[in-house]
Nucleic acid binder design. Structure first.
Lengths: 153, 153
DNA sequence: TGCAACAGTTGCACCCTAGCAAGTATTGGA
DNA sequence: TCCAATACTTGCTAGGGTGCAACTGTTGCA
């Protein structure tokens, strides 16, 4: 009876903790770029260099909106923008080192805080966490890219 | 050796799944209010009616910024704003029904999608998830309010 | 009573996102 | 070769968020 409820409660509690990790990991990045800008960096980090059109589609924004966003990211040296080699009307955006670092750092910070949390557990407990998390991740539908992007992944 | 790493990996994977739930649960709310506005609603839902000053402190924004934000929330009937009964220079903000519903709906949707995921597991597996999640939540430092607020909780 | 501290609001300036419409350059096919 | 489709940019408009400084009303103490 209460079995479902209590696992749901526990999962919600854990989700708050995990959310905290994500949020903190984002905090640093958001001092340098806005959330929409960061979302663009995340897409580039995940999918590699992109044409403007493809990027706009993935982000779900109007091409003209992306033009300005990219403009700012270029100004901040987070991405590069150059004409495609084979097609001069296409523009390819790629992560610049600073942009790469921004995303990588956030990822690393997130992973570190998860690891730090796990470190407080005994090996047995850690194993229990691993199994629980694995089961949950397997049971969950893979969240779509657009979903994750809402929160900057 | 790899024990820590694999639990960390599993946890990161689960965190992506949970993030997906959170993001989807927020999607509906963000069609009606902006993220900063939603953050205010979350604080009010969690801590009850607040003075402007207290709310601004919690949200970490300038009082004048909060004035406009609240202005918009009042216009949308998401909150009420009235002078404190005992002190006429203080202004108390409280959730209006629509605001309450907005937050409650997001919470409910999130909980539903977690429950739906758990439903795909056997009772034994569910129990393993419960235990893992509980252990993780207990080991994690309680994420501070400001952290959670970054992502709209 | 009067004045300083307090709680919010308003004016101002600035930046960012966002979409639409029009414009430009490029490409590819008729 | 020429014209339409494509890919992106630019001009325009609008709405938010944000902080600072100045202002208003209120309170509380000397």
């Amino acid at each position: 009876m209460g079995a479902m409820k209590s696992s749901a409660d526990a999962t919600m509690a854990a989700s708050r903790a995990l959310l905290g990790h994500v949020a903190r990991s984002l905090q640093g990045a958001l001092e340098h770029v806005t959330l929409p800008q960061y979302r663009a960096l995340v897409v580039l980090a995940a999918a590699g260099p992109q044409r403007m059109g493809a990027l706009a589609d993935t982000l779900g924004v109007h091409p003209s909106t992306l033009t300005r966003t990219v403009e700012r990211l270029v100004a901040g040296d987070f991405v590069t923008r150059e004409a495609a080699p084979d097609n001069r009307r296409e523009v390819v955006i790629a992560l610049a080192p600073a942009g790469e670092a921004l995303v990588a750092d956030a990822m690393a910070r997130r992973r570190d805080s998860v690891a730090a949390t796990l470190e407080r557990l005994s090996p047995d407990e850690r194993e229990a966490v691993r199994r629980g998390m694995e089961l949950y991740a397997a049971a969950a539908e893979e969240p779509g890219a657009p979903d994750l992007l809402t929160l900057g992944m």
